[in-house]
Design a binder for these strands. Structure first.
Lengths: 157, 157
DNA sequence: AATATAAAAGATGCGAACGTCTTTTATGGA
DNA sequence: TCCATAAAAGACGTTCGCATCTTTTATATT
């Protein structure tokens, strides 16, 4: 089973909004200059993200305290004390709007912890690994690990 | 992070079509009677699956050889020699129509094996565990493991 | 051969994630 | 105080997985 082909049939990913949010946050982190706010149009332009769509994502991030926003002339977005310490799972929760997660990965209706399907435990373990990973990794972890490659990831379209 | 809440924000599941396919196959396995074909309306009715939608799923399964179909009076669906040996990943591939899987779980555009993002390896490992599980488990494995609970899972809505 | 049956096939509709456009609100500066 | 700027907010459009309905094709029975 070629990895690329198989991946198409199993969904294990985050929303597009999540990707937009993460890349925008990293952009703000890299471009951070004390007191200088960065505007939506710059972020959307540099990262090639639909501007108005990104506006909604950024609004939610600001509302949740992951970053700061300011209206008006010289306004824009800027990181705050929380930004670097934000775990990825928080960004996922802020941007994730899909409410239809079935606890049984096989979609068997009567499957639960009391009456688990044969895959229940193994599937839960894998999902928990995934959640643990997103919970343990923060924005600063990403920023630190391999910065050179990272800047490219962000700046390039 | 409560497990149930977190699950809503991370997508790791199979399509509805997959669930319909799997449950229908298991139904055919359990209800199997030499030479007696089972009709779409019975399966859809018993499993509470939209009939016409299931028709398309079953058609694909038959076309791929996972089971047999026959038109006309006394027609219907029936398992064949392959059915029990079918790994779940095959059902996922047949029923999976989502073609938009990004190799980078963080949706970073420049992330690949040459230039991996900080989560790339860990995320791939988790995804591979998930793919391995689906590749190693066959229909007969599900059928055998805990049959009593299973029949309930299938027969109940 | 004619008929009834059941899957195959195709047209159409729905809802949610994703995306675009316009209007409103807040704010720094003239 | 007025104006320009930039985010906030909300209306509207698009796409795709999911679902429904109708028509066509194949086949067992008469």
């Amino acid at each position: 089973m070629p990895e690329q082909a198989a991946g198409r049939f199993v969904r294990m990913f985050l929303s597009k909004s999540f990707g937009y949010a993460l890349r925008s946050i990293l952009y703000l982190v890299l471009a951070h200059d004390e007191n200088k706010r960065i505007q939506l149009s710059e972020i959307a332009g540099k990262l090639n993200i639909p501007r108005h769509f990104l506006g909604k994502v950024m609004k939610r991030l600001a509302k949740e305290g992951v970053l700061l926003s300011q209206k008006g002339p010289m306004g824009g977005f800027i990181i705050n004390g929380q930004t670097l310490q934000t775990p990825l799972i928080k960004i996922a929760m802020i941007t994730g709007e899909s409410a239809h997660f079935d606890s049984c990965v096989l979609r068997l209706k009567k499957c639960n912890s009391q009456q688990p399907c044969p895959l229940h435990q193994q599937a839960l373990q894998i999902r928990d690994k995934w959640l643990d990973l997103l919970s343990s990794v923060t924005v600063s972890d990403l920023y630190k690990k391999d910065q050179a490659d990272f800047i490219k990831s962000i700046a390039n379209i």
